[in-house]
């Protein structure tokens, strides 16, 4: 453990040091992420002002729903950035280096890929959104709720991590996985910013069973908000995010281990 921690600090230090050699670049990049995403939220906010509510969710509740996506994504890119960009790691030969070094493959990918500055951009926005919306929707915080929230965020990170670990494993077979990710992750993410109940059965099923964003934000948000549209789903769905996260992650990890044997170093 101590060993992994010292490696973690070595990577974090070198990553940040190198980013801050170009200090202005680093600041602009962080700010750009923040502004780009904030711009998206403002656009959504303005659009929502036209409606009072969507399926009985008011604007603050919608922002609370949204904040879960941002916070989990902010943490996700600290740990899974390398998996997000994994095809590049293979194509440019960086994965050879990872294979040659005497440390766990995922340990290295996780530690080396961490993008602290982008995470800062996303994470800050998520926290700002969370603080504002959680306050305005009037959650009465207690210890159990705080624990639930932390567990839900970790589960959300694991679910998204599992999806990207799965896509990374696919890159051992096919070079181009960007489009798959576009369809399954980024498009579904756009759906996930609104309450699950507004969609038809097909999209709902995808968000629950295929690309389970519902367990990243909708069901955890329902635990706090208890909106009437929850009646359409079994109540236990609010509690299984950790199970979904851990199960998916283990499945994806097994698939990754299996697929590794198909790795073919680039060149020649």
């Amino acid at each position: 453990m101590k060993d992994i921690l010292s490696l973690f600090f070595a990577y974090a230090k070198s990553g940040l040091k190198s980013r801050f050699q170009y200090r202005l670049d680093a600041i602009v990049a962080t700010l750009a992420v923040f502004l780009r995403e904030a711009g998206g939220i403002i656009a959504m906010y303005l659009a929502l002002l036209k409606f009072d509510t969507i399926n009985d969710w008011n604007i603050d509740e919608l922002l609370f729903l949204f904040s879960l996506i941002f916070i989990t994504y902010g943490i996700f890119i600290v740990f899974f950035m390398a998996l997000r960009d994994f095809p590049d790691w293979i194509r440019h030969g960086d994965f050879d280096r990872v294979m040659l070094r005497p440390r766990g493959l995922l340990t290295q990918l996780v530690l080396c890929g961490a993008d602290w500055l982008a995470a800062l951009g996303h994470g800050t926005l998520g926290i700002v959104l969370f603080v504002i919306s959680a306050n305005r929707v009037g959650i009465q915080w207690n210890f159990a709720m705080a624990v639930y929230y932390v567990v839900a965020v970790i589960s959300g990170v694991l679910i998204q991590g599992a999806v990207f670990l799965f896509f990374s494993a696919i890159s051992f077979y096919v070079v181009e996985t960007g489009r798959l990710k576009g369809i399954f992750y980024w498009n579904m993410r756009k759906f996930a910013i609104y309450p699950l109940s507004i969609y038809n059965k097909i999209i709902q099923s995808i968000l629950i069973f295929v690309m389970p964003f519902a367990f990243v934000n909708y069901f955890p948000a329902q635990f706090f908000l208890r909106k009437p549209d929850m009646a359409a789903y079994p109540e236990w769905m609010m509690y299984i995010s950790p199970v979904v996260g851990v199960t998916l992650y283990l499945l994806a990890y097994s698939f990754w281990l299996f697929s590794l044997r198909f790795y073919k170093s680039t060149g020649n």
């Binding site: 070198s14 050699q21 280096r97 040659l100």
Partner: peptide
């Protein structure tokens, strides 16, 4: 094409 020893985006010292 990245090196099998060095990480491209870091200085040699790092």
């Amino acid at each position: 094409h990245s090196s099998a020893v060095l990480q491209d985006d870091l200085s040699l010292e790092l």
